[in-house]
């Protein structure tokens, strides 16, 4: 029944939180145990459904952070101030809790090791989550093509996966929008078109480009990237909305 294994799971499934790791002052990574998880592709997400005692439900999408092929189901959630689902998952959820998930979802905002081209990743805030799945997948496969990350984040405390990003060395550039770490020359501020040009693979190398983050950030980056000559057909974007963590 090889075919059955590839059928998408459309039903809500119970998932048990098996581990909660603090990722930053406002974000946590949650490991989920989902019976019969079929595996996922880097860039995919799951819908998470919470049900209150009175039957009220809330559904939100969360990207998978773990590498494709790792067998792990991990999401990283950053709190949206006042947010219904994110504050519960980050501040209250503990190992042993149950949630419902639907997924893995997404067949377009995905990167597979079979793609031989160089890859440029552009993240705004928590938009780094699916891109980290791509970096982890790329790293564990020892993929020969370059994969670079440009990561815009409000301040050093909000950086997700700080150790792993540091280990990427010059394959990653972190730019701060509100507070820069002490001793950096760049004043905090939005990423400029000149900075995008300086810190990303040139359009002439024809990279696949993945952009993810708050909607305003994504729209701005799409304009900059096409302005730098990237083929719009090679750019894939995922918008988290304006109330996701910037």
């Amino acid at each position: 029944m090889a075919r059955a294994a590839t059928l998408p799971r459309l039903t809500w499934q119970s998932a048990t939180l098996t581990q909660v790791r603090r990722e930053s002052s406002t974000a946590s990574t949650l490991r989920l145990d989902v019976a019969g998880w079929p595996g996922h592709r880097a860039g995919q997400h799951v819908d998470v459904r919470l049900t209150a005692a009175d039957g009220y439900t809330a559904v939100r999408p969360y990207s998978l952070a773990s590498a494709a092929g790792s067998g792990l189901v991990e999401i990283t959630v950053a709190t949206t101030p006042g947010g219904e689902v994110s504050t519960y998952l980050v501040n209250d959820a503990v190992a042993g809790n149950h949630v419902e998930v639907r997924g893995p979802l997404g067949s377009w905002f995905v990167w597979d090791v079979s793609d031989p081209d160089p890859v440029q990743l552009v993240a705004g805030g928590s938009g780094v989550v699916p891109l980290m799945s791509m970096l982890r997948t790329h790293g564990s496969a020892g993929h020969p093509a370059p994969m670079r990350l440009l990561y815009s984040v409000s301040d050093p405390e909000q950086v997700l996966y700080a150790d792993e990003v540091e280990q990427l060395a010059h394959a990653a550039t972190v730019l701060h929008t509100r507070h820069s770490p002490p001793g950096t020359a760049r004043p905090p501020g939005r990423v400029t078109p000149a900075e995008v040009e300086e810190h990303t693979l040139p359009a002439t190398s024809r990279p696949s480009v993945f952009v993810c983050g708050p909607t305003g950030f994504v729209e701005a980056m799409l304009t900059v990237l096409t302005g730098l000559g990237h083929d719009p057909e090679r750019i894939r974007a995922e918008r988290y909305g304006e109330r996701s963590s910037p």
Partner: peptide
Amino acid sequence: LDGNAAAGALAELFGTDIT
């Protein structure tokens, strides 16, 4: 948002991921 955010709801309508 974009169609990615609706992936789950679309899959419920179409029976497969159509993003």
